[in-house]
């Protein structure tokens, strides 16, 4: 090959790469613009706050209040976070500070497997294990009757789903706290636990917040597993043993049938927009914090 053709090839390849990179980045903006564009028709009819806080969901009458779904989303996510956060933090501290290499070598592959399991499988697990548990034990314990398909069932399933996300980020975050800093505390006569409490957790605090925020955004958007166990009832739920229908489930359950009603399509994309914006905010904020932590390491 002559030098000229080699250089030409290099030049062309570079152009192609640039194009693809641009495409990958633009996808994000295209999705955003697309969702905004599609939810615009319904936003013309009323203010966004009307849709966010109205509980009237009657597509046939063109009433599209998202409040029941937002409340369900908040319930399910909150339950998942309350259940997952303490266990994930404790397990991550154990794995990064106490466990020896052998145990870590056993557990990290398991967590990776957990991360790879598709959400429909989590849904099936929810149906086989969690639904009967809620129906036969948890609801009677609170003196209630439940089919087992409820917000707390969704929350429990979701809490297991976000474990790998949170644990992996937490392990990375703890790894950014330098050994020298921990040794500085140890050399003053602090115990390992005092060092963890006063130095590791304090230094890692922004990272822990980001790990929580990222898991939260994952939980917000999770569709199928939750849909399978949450009961899918369009009503503002009043307790965590009530069934509900979070935003992603709303979209998935109704998207096929919206063709005949004018604004239905737009309403469901408004639900997507709400999801998208929440996920976007949590994601960008936590990624930026994590990145800053990584930089400080160097």
């Amino acid at each position: 090959m002559s030098d000229k053709t080699r250089l030409q090839f290099d030049y062309r390849l570079k152009g192609l790469m640039k194009l693809f990179t641009l495409f990958a980045v633009l996808t994000l903006f295209i999705i955003f613009i697309g969702v905004v564009f599609k939810s615009y028709p319904i936003l013309k009819t009323n203010s966004i706050f009307h849709f966010l806080f109205s509980s009237e969901w009657f597509p046939q009458k063109e009433k599209f209040g998202l409040f029941p779904f937002i409340v369900s989303t908040l319930w399910v996510t909150a339950i998942a976070m309350v259940l997952a956060v303490p266990f994930c933090i404790l397990a991550s501290i154990y794995l990064s500070e106490y466990a020896d290499k052998k145990i870590i070598g056993w557990i990290t592959p398991l967590i990776d497997i957990l991360a790879g399991i598709p959400s429909v499988i989590f849904g099936i697990w929810g149906i086989i294990v969690v639904v009967p548990f809620v129906r036969d034990y948890l609801a009677p314990f609170f003196g209630k009757v439940s089919t087992g398909y409820s917000l707390i069932t969704g929350g429990i399933v979701l809490s297991v789903m976000i474990v790998p996300v949170m644990v992996n980020i937490l392990l990375e975050v703890f790894a950014t706290v330098s050994k020298g800093l921990k040794e500085a505390s140890l050399s003053l006569g602090a115990t390992k636990w005092q060092t963890i409490k006063n130095v590791l957790l304090r230094k890692a605090a922004p990272g822990i917040v980001s790990a929580i925020a990222l898991s939260l955004s994952r939980a917000f958007g999770e569709t199928l597993a939750v849909l399978m166990v949450v009961g899918n009832v369009t009503k503002v739920p009043h307790s965590m043993l009530d069934p509900g229908q979070p935003l992603p489930a709303l979209i998935a359950n109704n998207y096929g049938e919206m063709m005949s009603i004018d604004l239905y399509d737009s309403a469901l994309l408004l639900a997507s927009l709400v999801l998208f914006i929440i996920v976007l905010i949590f994601n960008i904020a936590s990624r930026l914090i994590l990145r800053k932590m990584e930089r400080n390491l160097g």
């Binding site: 330098s178 020298g180 800093l181 040794e183 500085a184 505390s185 050399s187 006063n198 130095v199």
Partner: peptide, 8 residues
């Protein structure tokens, strides 16, 4: 130590 490690 080799470089200072101020506690956070």
């Amino acid at each position: 130590s080799q470089r200072p490690y101020p506690l956070p």
